[in-house]
Design a protein around this nucleic acid. Structure first.
Lengths: 209, 209
DNA sequence: TTACTCGTGTGACATATATCACCGTCTTTC
DNA sequence: GAAAGACGGTGATATATGTCACACGAGTAA
């Protein structure tokens, strides 16, 4: 059962009445680690607020290329779920739960209704858009202006911060896929970073100093 | 003076009352060719709808690197100005008028007010976000997954479409700057495209076949 | 006319990244 | 313990792009 206080902890700026509306109208959907949030298109009629867990958002093109863009954490919303909903077409975005994840699913018509009724909701939706927009701009910065070694450092830092862990449990292949490069390149760059003393490379994981 | 029918031509989906509100409350601001729409931060307290002209949106980083992302045409809105306006923050993008340009400037508080009062406004704002978001995703596709020759072709096509002109009046240096590469690379790739018969390269301009 | 600037063409070379081949080591499974 | 598969290291080489140097012609200013 949903609890108002639980929701309030995640979304402290929401008005009390809005919290009650969420409690009354949102479904909770759970995703296992590794599961794709957009898989069947079923969530397209909902906007998704992350209750707990961690989601990674990727861009995919037609040829199967793929690149990691940003994380979604508890208390954040998936900006794309609204857009996809209205457009009613499959998105070229992949959203994967990297931890066991629970979300609040809000029916699209209520999203619109609440925009009128609750100023805090309006603010929240807008700041969500803005935040995602900025993430995309940062992604563009990285791939347009930075070399792979810098991108790798940024990537490692972000993953360390988000999981709040100096040890990053990813294989070189996984990192390569997310940066859209090859395993060999990642291995070599990691080696260089290790030589500089910035990290320690182990099997299956990397420690940041 | 603003005219309702003029606005209606550009924004045919807006309700009559909304058109009247715009007529009553929007200022028109003009920009000369080459002028920066965001220069002084003054427009940050407004949301901008393009009345006529053409605007190019760039991403800039701290080191002065720059890359072209997308165009804004008449009838479109600057998504960032909405976000910046509502949240009262400065942005890290550059918006330059590439033709003499006129915009409707809508005070921020009205943007929010109209979200409640006019469904067509709500729809318009959301579809603006969606459209810009997709532009950014396309930009990411191009720089992450495509080689410079493909990006160049995409760039030339888009510029030809938007200006509705088979002749693109840009120097190789300008193109290079917008693709964030060097003039020599652009010159060589253009030569290859010319050899394939796709374009004709002249001094100061390029014709698409 | 001369000189100068701008846009462009091009060879030579540097660098970053991609790709291929192959090997060793660790883990899992039987 | 043996086999198989996942992970990672590394040399050789290919390719795309960046950088430098310089030349050349068109237009423009002096």
């Amino acid at each position: 059962m949903l609890s108002v206080t639980e929701i309030k902890d995640l979304f402290p700026l929401f008005e009390t009445n809005l919290l009650k509306e969420i409690e009354k109208n949102a479904d909770i959907i759970e995703f296992a680690e590794g599961e794709d949030l957009m898989k069947s298109g079923q969530n397209i009629r909902y906007t998704i607020l992350l209750k707990e867990g961690l989601v990674k958002i990727y861009r995919e093109d037609e040829e199967g290329n793929e690149i990691f863009m940003y994380h979604l954490e508890a208390g954040q919303a998936c900006a794309l779920s609204i857009m996809c909903a209205v457009q009613n077409r499959t998105s070229e975005i992949k959203a994967v739960a990297v931890k066991p994840t629970k979300v609040y699913a809000i029916p699209v018509n209520l999203v619109e209704q609440w925009m009128r009724d609750y100023r805090s909701w309006y603010q929240f939706i807008l700041s969500t858009y803005r935040a995602r927009f900025e993430e995309l701009l940062n992604t563009i910065d990285a791939i347009a202006f930075k070399n792979m070694d810098e991108r790798l450092v940024i990537y490692l830092k972000k993953h360390s911060e988000i999981s709040n862990d100096k040890t990053i449990s990813l294989t070189h292949s996984q990192i390569a896929a997310e940066l859209s490069t090859s395993r060999e390149v990642v291995s070599r760059l990691l080696k260089k970073l290790a030589e500089k003393g910035l990290i320690k490379v182990n099997r299956q994981n990397i420690e940041i100093n």
